[in-house]
Amino acid sequence: TEDEKKIQELLKRANGDVSKAEKLAQSQGNEELARRLREYANK
């Protein structure tokens, strides 16, 4: 999905570090994506 692409892109930029990727999403003002990242990471 589009969200998964965004999540994978963020994870790439954060070198696979979920908490960093989450902070990136939040810094972009994207709380929804940050929440999805957390769920994605907890799979």
Rank of each mutant, 00 (worst) to 15 (best):
E39R: 03
D3T: 13
A21D: 00
Q26F: 10
S19L: 13
E4K: 07
E32V: 05
S19K: 14
K23N: 06
D17L: 04
L24E: 08
S19T: 11
G16C: 06
R35G: 07
L33F: 05
K20E: 10
G29H: 05
A14G: 02
N15M: 06
E22M: 15
K12P: 00
K43F: 09
E39G: 03
N30C: 09
Y40A: 04
E9W: 06
E22F: 11
A25W: 02
K5V: 11
E32S: 06
S19A: 14
K43V: 09
K20D: 03
L24P: 00
K43R: 13
E2R: 08
A25G: 01
E22W: 11
A34D: 01
A21R: 00
Q8N: 08
G29Q: 04
A34L: 09
K5M: 12
E9D: 11
L33G: 01
N42A: 14
T1V: 12
I7E: 01
S27W: 08
L10E: 02
E39D: 09
R35W: 07
A25N: 00
N30K: 06
E22A: 15
K5G: 09
T1Y: 14
Q8D: 06
S27K: 09
G16P: 00
L33P: 00
A14H: 05
G29N: 05
A21C: 00
K5Y: 12
Q28V: 08
R38S: 05
L24W: 14
R13T: 08
L11R: 00
L37V: 09
E31Q: 08
Y40K: 03
R35L: 12
K43N: 11
I7D: 01
A34Q: 03
I7C: 06
E39C: 09
K23M: 12
S27M: 14
D17I: 04
A21Y: 01
K20Q: 10
A25S: 02
G29E: 04
E32N: 06
L11Y: 02
R38E: 03
D3V: 14
R36K: 15
K20N: 05
L11W: 02
R36W: 10
A34E: 03
R13V: 12
E9H: 06
K12G: 06
A25K: 01
N15K: 08
D3G: 07
I7S: 02
S27E: 15
K20G: 05
E32T: 06
V18K: 03
A34K: 04
A21E: 00
E9Q: 08
L10Q: 02
Q28F: 08
K23W: 12
N15G: 13
K12Q: 11
Q26H: 10
I7P: 00
K43T: 11
K20H: 07
L37C: 03
E39M: 05
K20I: 14
K20S: 06
E32P: 03
Q26W: 12
L24K: 03
E31I: 10
A41W: 14
G16Y: 14
T1E: 14
D3C: 13
K5R: 14
E32D: 11
A21S: 01
N15T: 02
V18W: 15
S19H: 13
N42D: 10
A41K: 08
E9V: 05
S27F: 09
K6M: 15
E39F: 03
K12C: 14
E32C: 07
E39I: 05
K6I: 15
S19M: 11
N42P: 05
L37G: 00
G29S: 03
T1C: 11
E9K: 05
V18A: 08
L33E: 02
N42W: 09
N15Q: 09
E2F: 13
G29Y: 09
S27L: 15
E31D: 13
E2D: 13
E22Y: 13
A21V: 02
R35S: 07
N30D: 15
S27N: 09
E31Y: 15
V18Q: 03
E9Y: 05
E2L: 12
A14P: 01
E4F: 14
S19E: 13
R38M: 04
K43A: 11
S19G: 12
I7G: 01
A25R: 01
L10T: 03
G16Q: 04
A14Q: 03
A14D: 01
K5D: 12
L24G: 01
K5P: 07
T1W: 14
E31H: 14
N15E: 08
L10N: 01
A14N: 03
G16T: 01
K43W: 09
Q26M: 15
E39L: 05
Q8W: 13
V18E: 02
E2Q: 10
E2Y: 13
A41P: 03
A21F: 01
R36I: 15
N30F: 13
A25E: 02
L37P: 00
E4S: 08
L11N: 00
A41F: 14
L37E: 02
G29K: 03
L10D: 00
K43D: 08
R36A: 14
E22I: 15
G16S: 02
Q28R: 04
A41I: 13
L33K: 00
L24C: 05
K6C: 13
E9P: 00
E22L: 15
N15R: 07
Q26T: 09
K12I: 11
Q8I: 14
L10Y: 12
L11P: 01
Q28L: 14
L37T: 01
L24Y: 09
K43H: 11
Q8E: 11
E22V: 15
A25I: 03
Q8F: 10
A34N: 02
R38H: 06
E32A: 08
E32H: 07
L10S: 02
K23R: 10
L37Q: 00
V18P: 08
K43I: 09
R36P: 03
E4L: 14
K20R: 11
L24M: 13
R35Y: 06
K6L: 15
K6Q: 15
E9M: 07
A41Q: 07
Q26C: 10
L10H: 02
R35A: 12
V18R: 04
L24A: 05
E31V: 09
L11M: 06
S19R: 14
Y40H: 05
E4T: 09
D17M: 03
L33Q: 02
R13I: 14
N30M: 14
Y40I: 09
A34I: 08
L37A: 01
E2K: 07
N15I: 01
D3H: 09
S27H: 09
L33C: 04
Q8C: 15
R13L: 15
A25T: 01
L24T: 04
I7A: 04
E22R: 03
A14S: 07
E2I: 13
E2C: 12
V18I: 13
K20C: 12
R38V: 07
I7N: 01
N30I: 03
A14C: 13
A25L: 10
D3I: 15
Q26D: 04
A41E: 05
D17C: 05
E31M: 12
A14L: 05
E31N: 08
L37R: 00
N30H: 08
K20T: 08
A21P: 00
N30W: 15
N15V: 02
I7M: 11
Q8A: 10
G16M: 05
K43P: 06
A21G: 02
K6S: 11
R13N: 09
A41R: 08
N30Y: 13
T1I: 13
A41C: 11
E39P: 01
A14K: 00
G16K: 02
D17N: 09
K12A: 13
E4I: 14
R13H: 10
A41H: 08
N42H: 09
L10V: 05
D17K: 02
E31R: 06
K23T: 06
R38Q: 06
Y40T: 03
E2V: 10
Y40S: 03
E9C: 09
D3Y: 15
Y40W: 14
E2G: 09
N42T: 12
A25D: 01
T1Q: 11
R35D: 09
Q8V: 12
E9L: 06
L33I: 06
I7W: 04
I7L: 12
R36N: 06
N42Q: 13
Y40L: 11
Q28W: 11
T1M: 12
S19P: 05
N15W: 07
L24H: 05
K6T: 12
L33Y: 02
E2T: 10
K5Q: 12
L24R: 02
V18M: 06
N30R: 05
R13A: 15
K6N: 10
N42M: 14
K23V: 08
K12R: 13
L11D: 00
A21W: 02
K20P: 01
K5L: 11
R36Y: 09
Q28K: 05
G29T: 02
E31T: 10
A34M: 06
N30A: 07
V18N: 02
A41G: 07
D3W: 15
D17S: 07
K12D: 11
T1D: 14
Q26R: 14
G16A: 02
Y40M: 12
Q26S: 07
Y40V: 04
E31F: 15
K43S: 11
Q28P: 02
D17G: 01
A41Y: 14
E32Y: 07
K20A: 13
L24F: 07
A41V: 13
K6D: 14
A34H: 01
K23G: 06
K23I: 10
K6R: 11
E31G: 06
S27D: 14
E32R: 06
N42Y: 10
S19F: 11
